[in-house]
């Protein structure tokens, strides 16, 4: 099957699979998810064919996270090594968080001391969750993270939900505040942090950078209503992910309102029937 110039203009997504020839390699360049053999561009993954000018790529419908510089990710510390942490970020290799890419207590411009290297576990320990940004790549493709912003750092007061990374689209902001007193961090790697809402003015400012608070391992007091809201949002995300619906703040909000209207308990959301109803209600709400 050959590909003509105008094949892509119809707005129809072409679906392909491994070993399927897409087009001639004379007219087009091969991108991700393809390889060239006997003068043909051939798909190597199953997904949709995308074209940018002469570049053909195939986007796998489900795969591990492919990092890009500037992406916001949520990760979990797996290992503490000399001057660095290893972070699981749902990618093909563990990410690296250098000691020099985190904010240390005592001011942003503070120099790193040997004592900092010795007490790395007081900042991040194995199993800690954190939100960070992709800073750069190493030569082997592993990503380097940084948490040099006051919005980044250790996570607490909440719950982690995992979804396929393709369901998280790039948004204006990946920090979402739902009106039900729940904050969301939509990591592009498919890890989502659902937590209690923190008021803007209570976030640590530049001067009042408080190491105790930033690297604290203790949760705040969370009342029952907030706990229920967090679990409900968590369940909604799991449900939408199981139906393979891309997550945006609008969809989540609508689903949450629907869930409140139904007056069911939090775990009712995980029933198949309730899930189907929610998904079909989403469609009708948006078409109006």
């Amino acid at each position: 099957m050959d590909l003509d110039e105008d094949d892509f203009d119809e707005g129809v997504q072409r679906i392909t699979g491994p070993g399927e020839s897409i087009t001639s390699s004379h007219a087009f360049m091969r991108g991700h998810g393809t390889y060239v053999d006997s003068e043909e561009v051939i798909a190597s993954v199953s997904g949709t064919v995308e074209r940018v000018n002469k570049l053909i790529t195939v986007r796998a419908v489900r795969s591990r996270y492919n990092p890009e510089v500037g992406d916001l990710v949520v990760g979990r510390i797996t290992e503490v090594q000399p001057r660095r942490w290893k972070v699981d970020a749902n990618s093909r290799q563990d990410a690296v968080l250098m000691l020099s890419s985190v904010n240390l207590p005592g001011g942003v411009q503070r120099r790193k001391l040997e004592s900092d290297e010795l007490q790395m576990r007081t900042f991040f320990e194995e199993g800690d969750l954190l939100v960070a940004e992709v800073q750069a790549f190493f030569s082997d493709g592993a990503m380097s993270l940084h948490t040099r912003s006051l919005r980044y750092g250790k996570l607490r007061n909440g719950q982690l939900v995992t979804v396929p990374p393709i369901l998280i689209r790039r948004l204006k902001s990946h920090f979402v505040s739902l009106p039900c007193g729940v904050d969301l961090i939509l990591g592009l790697n498919g890890y989502i942090w659902v937590s209690k809402h923190v008021k803007q003015h209570e976030q640590e400012g530049e001067e009042g950078f408080d190491a105790e608070a930033v690297y604290s391992n203790r949760n705040d007091d969370i009342d029952d209503a907030t706990r229920a809201a967090i679990s409900r949002v968590g369940n909604i995300i799991k449900l939408l992910a199981s139906h393979f619906i891309p997550l945006t703040d609008a969809v989540l909000l609508e689903a949450y309102e629907w869930a409140i209207e139904q007056e069911g308990s939090v775990k009712d959301l995980l029933l198949d029937e309730v899930g189907e109803n929610l998904v079909s209600s989403l469609g009708s709400g948006m078409r109006q």
């Binding site: 699979g17 419908v61 369901l167 393979f244 891309p246 469609g283 078409r287």
Partner: peptide, 27 residues
Amino acid sequence: MKLAVKDRTVVLVGAMDAGLKGVAVDD
């Protein structure tokens, strides 16, 4: 095998498009 893979891909891509456009997904 190709048919099964294609079927799954079509379903998932369809669900994603439907989710983006706000149309209900037939499971």
